[in-house]
Amino acid sequence: MSAFEGEALSCARGGRVVFSRLDFRVRGGEALVLVGPNGSGKSSLLRLMAGLSAAASGRLRWNGEAVAADPTAHRRRLHYVGHLDAVKPALDAREILLFTARLRAGGGKARAAVSAALETMGIAHLGDVPTRYFSAGQRRRLALARLFVAPAPLWLLDEPRTALDAEAVARLDNAIAAHRHGGGLVVAAMHGGPYPPEATVVDLAAFSSPLQ
């Protein structure tokens, strides 16, 4: 079973220590929810987990092995959905997902995977529409649909419910449940519940530290 853990993580931004000595541990099937006030470092921690930024101190481990030892393997095992939707207005939804599918999985079943992903997020009817006509919620659905085009065990989601309507939130919750059921790991920054069932909640405010 996969296990993702962080030990004594500290993060500094713009000369300020955002959080320090933070430990976490998620195993296959589990969910970790990051909460805390604005500026407490939820996004910073997710970016750090993704390997987009380096921790000021501390270690990340996957199945006991240091993540820093093989960053490529780490990138292969994660999906990161940040604040930005990475949606190109000139392309249609299918083209956008197809690029991700081929870049990450490379296999021949990319088209089928894309159709299934569009279905999962409830935007199958928008597959051939240029995304410049999409609403903010539809763009968010498309960004989340990337999670399904190429399977990866670790999902890092930064406020995934932003701009989503109730129907889409339900779809997302179901998808998260299915992912966990299949042994996947989910780390999500959230503002307010309901949190995924049996999720571990980490309040980042507890790790904010005064300056040295």
Partner: peptide
């Protein structure tokens, strides 16, 4: 960079 595609590119398996 502005729309977030660069982050996804940096996180893709391709170096």
């Amino acid at each position: 960079y502005e729309d977030g595609s660069l982050e996804l590119l940096a996180l893709a398996p391709l170096p």
